[in-house]
Write a protein that binds this DNA or RNA. Structure first.
Lengths: 228, 228
DNA sequence: AGGCTTGATATTGTAAACAATAATGGTTGA
DNA sequence: TCAACCATTATTGTTTACAATATCAAGCCT
């Protein structure tokens, strides 16, 4: 019966997924009882999950008021973006190891899925797969610690994009991923690093920190399909 | 009184401080009831603190067995060291902003304290101040997000050094900090970055991942002075 | 004698009841 | 009609007791 940690991980993953897929808007309230019903769990477990997510800056706990999906400030947003850029660009410039054959294969497989999602106009899958591409890259050229750090930054970026994205822009060009993989295959890390810098700057250029949008959202309908 | 978050932060800080100062050896058991007595708190709060610390990889929770100070594996140790090196070296090479006058002043003040601690042979203060120097540097040239990420890595490094340090070595030369500040004052970031790389490599060269030491420690006496 | 089983003890994990606080809505008075 | 106030309701926060599990020690059997 001791699989409570597993269950909590499942709930946390579901919430993170919802954030990643931009279903949970920043500022949304996360009532404990409601979450417990949705995930067929109890308040104690939900409470622990929210506490952990607050540590990842995904959730903000306001004493006496409850848990809310975080609303990163413009300054925090800039810092998160810059930090991610530093890590990824620097790692590509001086990777800990060359890209292995199976590493390239892993990346190619993700890219194939990206192409399929693109063809199917599945924006949600594209966001998820783009993240996976970057994380896999970091794991292959770097290590697991950097991967987990960047994973958190990507999650926070999801909130940032939801809050500050300009209308009518499509972030995350998957064509860049293709070129990136080609450069890495040729072991041209200097050029790959430069491309990664442009890639991330491209994402940032889609943001506008002047607007402070509402986007505070409903919860129940959005999260219903998550209960497994 | 709603200041429970504050109290938990105090307990977490005390535990982190103990880890930083190498008083809490990796592998030490952290019984909830005992901690509650030491900090004049209750199990519920201790439990939340341990949960949060487990997320920072400072504490490992074993289901049904309790909480232990983490014992980073050699591989995890290498990854943590490499990640910290990547962040600090890259940031110095291409800082987000030049070192300001008050930034230099902050660093100089820490260095002065370091010198005092060195004169007083206060090894504990030196460890703490060395960390503060690095974190302040990152905040001045980078941002708060990078600072918090690196703060966690430094904490993990403390565990790593405790576990794998060779005998008769003194890590963390404060003379490097002096030279570093001079180079930064002259805005020679390329050379500062190179020095930082050598500095961190110097720390790593004091480690020996072959030995797997015991070091599992008592708890009560060590933590008694922490209860405020 | 040594290893294994078994019972006792201590520690962790969970649930439920209770208390405290914030949000809500309705009422009253200017 | 609007604003301020109070009562009600809902939600969060804390404590308590209890259940489950692991640890330890003694006794038993081979």
């Amino acid at each position: 019966m001791g699989s409570s940690a597993k269950e909590e991980a499942r709930i946390a993953d579901a919430l993170c997924k919802a954030v990643l897929e931009r279903k949970l808007a920043p500022g949304s309230k996360l009532p404990e009882e409601e979450l417990a019903q949705i995930f067929r769990s109890n308040r104690a477990k939900i409470r622990r999950v929210l506490l952990l997510l607050s540590r990842s800056h995904i959730v903000t706990l306001e004493p006496g008021r409850g848990a809310f999906v975080s609303r990163p400030s413009p300054q925090e947003a800039r810092d998160v973006l810059a930090s991610r850029r530093l890590i990824e660009v620097s790692l590509l410039a001086r990777p800990y190891r060359k890209l292995s054959a199976q590493g390239a294969e892993r990346l190619r497989r993700i890219m194939t899925q990206e192409a399929q999602a693109h063809a199917a106009h599945d924006a949600i899958a594209m966001i998820y797969l783009s993240g996976q591409f970057h994380l896999t890259l970091i794991e292959e050229l770097g290590n697991k610690v950097l991967k987990s750090i960047t994973g958190e930054l990507i999650l926070r970026m999801s909130l940032i994009i939801t809050m500050y994205e300009r209308q009518n822009t499509t972030c995350c060009l998957s064509s860049d991923h293709h070129d990136l993989l080609e450069l890495l295959g040729a072991h041209d890390y200097a050029e790959a690093s430069a491309l990664m810098a442009r890639h991330l700057e491209g994402i940032e250029s889609c943001l506008d920190f002047h607007r402070e949008p509402a986007t505070t959202t409903i919860l129940s309908q959005i999260l219903q399909p998550l209960k497994d």
